[in-house]
Simulated scan of single mutants.
Amino acid sequence: MQSASGPGRPLQAVIFDWAGTLVDFGSLAPTQIFVDAFHSFGIELSLQQARGPMGLSKWQHIRLLLEDPSLAAQWRQRTGHAPTQADIDAIYAHFMPMQIAKVGQYSQPIAGAAQVLAWLRGQGLKIGSCSGYPRQVLDVLLPMAAAEGIRPDHVVAGDELPAGGRPGPYMALANMLALQIDDVAGCIKVDDTVPGIEEGLRAGMWSVGVSLSGNEVGLTRAQLQALPTEEAAHRKEEAEQRLRAAGAHYVIDSVADLPQIVAHVRSRLAMGERP
C-alpha cells in the first residue's frame, strides 16, 4: 500500500454493495420479491418497474413504487383510496418474510468476487459493505456468503441508521467510521445502482458502477448469454450510460474487473487528486 507521505494520500478501503455487486448476478432477489409482494395485494408490478428505485432501503423503495401513477391508479381501483403510509407499512410487512425466505436462493457469489476480496486484503485494504437490505435479510444472507468466501470487515444494513440510507452518504460513512478510515478520498464505493453511486459521491469517495452483473442490465448470466450479441452490447452500453450519468468515476462489467480500477485510483491519489 502506498505511503501517506508525499503529495498524495493512500487508498485505504473499498466499500461494496451486495445484491448485483458481490452476490446475485442480475440483482434478482429484491426485484422478484417486490413483484410477488405487490401481486399478493392484487397489484400488477413488472420487473422493470420494480427495478426503478433499486438501491434504496426497502421501505423507501415501496413508497416510491406506490408513487408511480400506474401503480397508484391500480391501488385506488383495488382499495378506493390513494396509497397511504399504512399501506406502505402493510406491503413492507408482507414483503419482509418473503424476502427472508427467498434471499438464500439468490445468494450465489458473482464470479470473481471472493478472489477480488482476497486480493484487496493482500493489498492491505480494508473491506466495507452496505445494502438496501434490512438487517433481518442480511442475517440470513451473510453466513451463506461467508461460506463462499465473501466476508467484508464491516456490514451496514439499510434500516439501521437513524439518518436513513441511500442516496444519502450515511451507510458509506458508517463503514468509514467503523473501519477507522481517516480520509473519505481514500475509499472506493462499488455499486450497481444509481442511488448507490450517488451515495459514494455524497460521501466524497471514488464511485465505481457495475453494469453487466447488476440492476441496470437486470438479467441472469444465462439470460445475458442467450441474447444476440448486438442486443447484449446495447443493454450494457445503456447501463453504463445511466451509471456514468449518475456520476460514476468508473464503470466496470463486474466486480472481477475491480483490480485495474484500484491501480488507477491509487495513481491518481499519488498525484494528489481527489474524487
Results as ranks from 00 to 15, higher is better:
S5G: 02
P10K: 02
Q12H: 10
W18R: 08
G26E: 03
L28N: 04
A29C: 10
T31C: 13
A37C: 05
A37L: 05
A37S: 13
Q48I: 05
G52L: 12
P53L: 12
M54Y: 05
M54H: 07
M54P: 05
L56D: 08
H61C: 14
H61K: 11
L66N: 06
P69L: 08
L71I: 15
A72C: 09
A73N: 06
Q74S: 04
W75A: 04
R76L: 13
P83D: 09
I88H: 14
I91R: 14
Y92D: 15
A93Y: 07
F95Q: 12
M96W: 07
M96N: 11
M98K: 07
M98S: 03
I100A: 01
A101N: 15
G104V: 12
I110Y: 00
A113I: 00
Q115G: 00
L120D: 06
R121G: 11
R121V: 08
Y133Q: 07
P134Y: 08
A146G: 12
A147K: 05
E148Y: 09
E148I: 03
R151F: 05
D153Y: 01
V156Y: 08
V156L: 10
A157R: 02
P162E: 15
A163G: 05
P169K: 11
Y170T: 03
A172W: 14
A174L: 07
A185C: 14
C187S: 07
V190I: 04
G196V: 06
E199I: 12
T220D: 10
R221W: 02
A222H: 01
L224W: 04
Q225L: 12
A226F: 02
P228C: 10
P228N: 09
A232N: 00
Q241A: 15
Q241R: 15
A245Y: 08
G247D: 05
A248N: 10
S254I: 00
S254E: 00
S254M: 01
A256H: 08
D257N: 09
R266W: 00
A270N: 03
E273V: 04
